[in-house]
C-alpha cells in the first residue's frame, strides 16, 4: 500500500483523532440538546418546572403532562392528533396516485411542452405558501370549505405534488423500458404494463414518495391555522400554536404535545432517510 509510506503531518493526526471526536460530541449535543430539554420538561410536575434555581432533571418523573394534554377538553390533543392523521393520510394517498401517473407520463411519453412542464413543477417547489393564503382562503370560503378536511387536503397538494412528481420522474426514468415494451407486445395495454410491470419495480420509490408527502403535510402550519376556525378541526401544528394562545402558556402540557407530535415523523423519517436523500441530491451530484 503506497500511501502507508507517506508520513502523516501533525495537522492530519490531530484532525483524525481528538478534533473529530470533540466535533462529533458537540454536533450531537447541539442537535439533540433542545429535544432532551423538552423531554425532561415534559416529565416534570408543576413545582419542578417552575423551580428556582432551575432543576434540570425531574426528581419524580411523571406522565401527568401527557395524560392532561391528551385528554384536555380545552385543547383536545387527541383530537388534533386524529385530525392530522386523517388529513395527512388522505393527502398521502391522493398525492401518490397523482404523482405516479404524472411521473410515468413525463418519464415515458414524448409530448410538446414536456420540459416546460418539468420546469413548472420545479419552480412551484420553491413557491411560498404564504403567497397562497389570502387567495386560497377566498376560494375555500366561496366554496363553503372553511373548517373542512377537504380544504386542508386540497391545499396540501400545492406543495406535495410538485416535489413528488419530480421524485417519481426520477424513479421511473431509472427503470428500463424493455420490460414494459415486451409486456405490451404480449398484449398488455399501457395501463396494464404500468400496473403489472412498472409499479412493482418502482415500489420502494413510491413508498418513499408517499412517506415524504405524509411528513411534509404533518409539518404544515399556515394553511391549517388559516382555513380552520373550530378547535375541533385543528391539526397538530395548528393545535400546538393554539395551546400557546390559551391563557398563560402551559409549558408542561405543551412540551408533552411537542414530543408526541415529533415521534411519528421521526420514526417515518428513519425509514425514509436513504430514499429522501437520494431524491434530494439526485441531479445535484454528478456521476
Amino acid at each position: 500500500m503506497a500511501r502507508r509510506h507517506v508520513p502523516r503531518d501533525l495537522a492530519e493526526r490531530l484532525l483524525a483523532g481528538p478534533v473529530i471526536w470533540i466535533g462529533l460530541i458537540l454536533l450531537t449535543a447541539f442537535a439533540l440538546g433542545p429535544f432532551i430539554w423538552m423531554l425532561l420538561t415534559s416529565l416534570k410536575d408543576r413545582t419542578e418546572l417552575y423551580a428556582t434555581p432551575l432543576q434540570y432533571l425531574p426528581r419524580h418523573p411523571t406522565f401527568e403532562n401527557y395524560v392532561e394534554a391528551w385528554t384536555s377538553p380545552v385543547t383536545p390533543f387527541s383530537r388534533f392528533f386524529l385530525n392530522s392523521l386523517w388529513v395527512c393520510s388522505v393527502t398521502m394517498v391522493a398525492t401518490t396516485i397523482v404523482s405516479v401517473l404524472a411521473g410515468y407520463a413525463i418519464a415515458r411519453f414524448k409530448f410538446a411542452g414536456r420540459d416546460a412542464l418539468l420546469l413548472i413543477f420545479l419552480a412551484t417547489q420553491m413557491f411560498p405558501s404564504v403567497l397562497l393564503i389570502a387567495p386560497l382562503l377566498t376560494q375555500w370560503r366561496a366554496l363553503g370549505l372553511i373548517d373542512s378536511y377537504q380544504a386542508l387536503i386540497y391545499s396540501n397538494f400545492s406543495f406535495t405534488v410538485p416535489f413528488t412528481v419530480w421524485m417519481m420522474v426520477g424513479y421511473f426514468t431509472s427503470i428500463p423500458r424493455d420490460l414494459e415494451e415486451s409486456a405490451m407486445i404480449d398484449g398488455c395495454n399501457h395501463f396494464g404494463a404500468l400496473c403489472r410491470i412498472v409499479l412493482p419495480l418502482a415500489a420502494p420509490g413510491i413508498a418513499a414518495t408517499a412517506i415524504f408527502a405524509f411528513v411534509v403535510s404533518w409539518s404544515e402550519l399556515l394553511f391549517a391555522i388559516s382555513f380552520t376556525t373550530e378547535t375541533n378541526m385543528r391539526t397538530l401544528s395548528a393545535g400546538l400554536l393554539y395551546m400557546v394562545g390559551q391563557y398563560e402558556v402551559q409549558w408542561g402540557q405543551l412540551s408533552a404535545g411537542v414530543i408526541l407530535s415529533t415521534v411519528p415523523v421521526a420514526v417515518l423519517f428513519a425509514f425514509l432517510q436513504r430514499h429522501l436523500i437520494h431524491g434530494l441530491t439526485a441531479g445535484a451530484v454528478k456521476g
Binding site: 450531537t28 442537535a31 409539518s219 415523523v265 421521526a266 423519517f269 428513519a270
Partner: peptide
C-alpha cells in the same frame, strides 16, 4: 440519523 432530527420536525415544534 440523530443529527438530522432538527431538520425533519415541524416548524411549529
Amino acid at each position: 440519523t440523530l443529527t438530522l432530527l432538527p431538520w425533519i420536525i415541524p416548524g411549529v415544534v
